[in-house]
């Protein structure tokens, strides 16, 4: 990792009275794989659109591959492949026609990677895209976005509508791309998978990145919040308080100390099953939104 592929300082974007991004600072080194997570409406798409020059920022300075998207977006787009958040594929084309059309804009293509993607995705390329399912359309869009041989890949929820096995396959492909020296910025809702993939993870909330210390504190607190199902007729043992009862009967509780120690101390048969140390993204958002240092 050497020079910064992306350098953003104090980036802000407003749409009328609504603020989508507020004073975002971001630096992504060349060859880095950055994951951005955040709830819907946090500003992930706006940030990616700003980086590729589709949306002009309201204020702040930014440089992508050494160019300012406000004045040289074309130079950036020549060296960048962008996957929009909304699956943009032409329904009237066949899958093969769409790939050819998309490839026509970037003269240098990674044919081996494209073939690997198409093998892994197993798309019926001779059929019209109109007949594809949502997942197949997303696979086609991902294949078209990853095939160009460019320096930077901006991927807005590439794993959307993909099932788990395809997401794992995609993760391997992205890791290989990174090993080849490409810079990748992707947004996602799958916290666990992005964590295992990305060099760095940033939480975007209400249009700004959450400070790492606040994320660490929230995660530490979440580690004390197991999800569990009680045994038949059992009451919640002492040493934990109920935070939330979900529709399927699962309880979200917060323990006073180490949740593993608390679980070990509970009477036999009181707990049917428990999930500890696997923070869910939505829980993390809720906690960050309520935490004093969490909300930006």
């Amino acid at each position: 990792m050497t020079a910064a592929a992306i350098a953003v300082r104090g980036l802000g974007k407003s749409f009328g009275s609504r603020t989508a991004l507020r004073a975002v600072d971001l630096e992504v080194a060349a060859g880095e794989l950055l994951g951005i997570v955040g709830p819907n409406g946090a500003g992930k798409t706006t940030l990616l659109r700003t980086l590729v020059g589709l949306v002009p920022p309201s204020h702040g300075s930014l440089a992508v591959l050494g160019h300012d998207p406000r004045t040289a977006s074309l130079a950036i787009r020549r060296r960048t492949s962008y996957l929009p958040g909304e699956t943009g594929v032409y329904l009237q084309m066949t899958g093969a026609q769409f790939l050819r059309f998309a490839a026509g804009f970037h003269p240098r293509q990674q044919t081996a990677l494209r073939d690997r993607l198409l093998d892994g995705f197993a798309l019926p390329l001779r059929q019209k895209v109109r007949s594809y399912s949502a997942g197949m359309k997303q696979k086609l869009a991902v294949a078209a976005a990853l095939a160009p041989d460019v320096d930077l890949y901006l991927l807005d929820e590439p794993d959307r509508a993909l099932d788990a096995s395809v997401r794992f396959f995609l993760r391997d492909v992205l890791l290989d791309l990174q090993r080849a020296g490409k810079t990748i910025v992707l947004s996602s809702h799958h916290l666990g998978e992005v964590e295992t993939l990305a060099d760095r993870l940033e939480f975007l909330l209400d249009g700004a990145f959450v400070p790492p210390a606040a994320v660490q504190a929230a995660r530490a607190r979440l580690r004390r919040r197991p999800r569990l199902r009680l045994g038949d007729g059992a009451e919640l043992p002492a040493g934990a308080r109920l935070l939330q009862r979900e529709a399927d009967g699962t309880l979200l509780v917060e323990t006073d100390g180490d949740p593993m120690a608390w679980l070990r101390a509970t009477p036999p048969g009181a707990i049917d099953s428990a999930e500890v140390g696997v923070p869910r993204l939505e829980d993390l958002y809720q906690l960050l939104l309520r935490a004093p240092g969490g909300r930006p």
Partner: peptide
């Protein structure tokens, strides 16, 4: 309508 507008604008074409 077909959600391809963003795809089109993001191509390396002015």
């Amino acid at each position: 309508e077909a959600q391809t507008f963003e795809f089109l604008l993001a191509r390396p074409v002015s």
